[in-house]
Design a protein around this nucleic acid. Structure first.
Lengths: 128, 128
DNA sequence: GCGATGGTTCGATGATGTGCGAACATCGAC
DNA sequence: GTCGATGTTCGCACATCATCGAACCATCGC
């Protein structure tokens, strides 16, 4: 960090919170992207985010049968795969699906995954 | 190759060999499909099979830096994900990518994965 | 028959992933 | 300042996965 506080702009750069590290889809390997998508919980999160407007959903607004710790981990994985962007909003954390960027990096991939309707849809079950 | 006039059936239903169990793409969950694709070795196999004609490549014809046991395992995974079909050909085992069937089940998925060119392409490295 | 080739199966092993609970940090509200 | 809500981080347990070497089995060619 430099002397003058930089970029306190739209992303609501507050001090204190780790200020989530983001990975751009361009820096993500196909294997990593597929691995990030190959999980029922994360798939569900992606699907829900795709149905919602940007920044509409906070991390806690998802009905998943896991604890906070595990959920936080899943969001970190999605972030690391360039699939979502996060922004601090007060005490909560808002999310957005990086559809355009991810689509440019992996054309058709997200579309194919989201097109898959009812099969794996719904709240993921407890069994892996 | 056509010299073998055993003519039991083309899928070679012989006794002895396990006669590889196949899973149709229709019975595969999206999660399972993605998990099967989310591995450098398997991704390489799929890519190579996509470049080759049906039944052209045998299991041992791939240049991968792993032992036979691991390779056999990977083929089993691909089979279980409905991605490939295998047929016994004498002492070898021939493979084919189930492109059409898989495409009907997951439209665009294989295309998106194969479209991804040089990034993860080539012989997979030793590091997972 | 015999041996060589090509794959599969069987443990074992190390790595990775997913889950939890507890402790901690930050923010908004009072 | 204190409290409650929201997430993150830290071990830790447990399951799954990828890999290996060795044993095994079926087939082909001789």
């Amino acid at each position: 960090m430099s002397a003058s506080a930089s970029a306190e702009s739209q992303t609501q750069g507050r001090a204190g919170r780790p200020a989530p590290e983001h990975t751009h889809p361009d820096e993500v390997s196909l294997t990593a992207a597929l691995a990030a998508l190959a999980d029922p919980v994360r798939l569900y999160l992606i699907r829900e985010l795709a149905r919602s407007a940007d920044w509409e959903r906070t991390c806690g607004s998802f009905d998943v049968p896991i604890g906070k710790a595990a959920l936080s981990h899943h969001f970190a994985v999605l972030r690391g795969a360039g699939l979502i962007e996060q922004r601090d909003a007060g005490t909560k954390r808002a999310n957005r699906l990086r559809r355009a960027e991810f689509d440019r990096r992996f054309p058709g991939l997200l579309g194919a995954v989201l097109r898959e309707g009812a099969a794996d849809a719904g709240v993921p079950s407890r069994s892996r």
